[in-house]
């Protein structure tokens, strides 16, 4: 089987690749969001702790 044939998916290329593309997108976003959120939370807590110290 050559690459063109593979990408063509027997005429169902649009349906198959849209499905796999959306799945990839959703699954990757679900990893990025909590990873970014964790750094944000930690930075937030550190900033508040520094501010509390400089005020006291």
């Amino acid at each position: 089987m050559n690459l063109n044939e593979f990408l063509h998916m027997g005429g169902y290329a649009f349906y198959v690749w849209t499905s796999y593309g959306i799945a990839l997108l959703v699954l990757v976003v679900n990893i990025i969001l909590p990873a970014r959120q964790r750094t944000k939370i930690l930075a937030n807590i550190a900033r508040k702790a520094r501010r509390a110290r400089s005020e006291s």
């Binding site: 679900n30 990893i31 909590p34 990873a35 959120q37 964790r38 939370i41 930690l42 930075a43 937030n44 807590i45 550190a46 702790a49 520094r50």
Partner: peptide
Amino acid sequence: VVLMRARCEVLERERNTVWVRELAEEK
């Protein structure tokens, strides 16, 4: 992924504890 999210939730809930503050300031 649920563990990743759970870690965030734990940090939020424990944000006033010593260990979370120490962890945050390590970074």
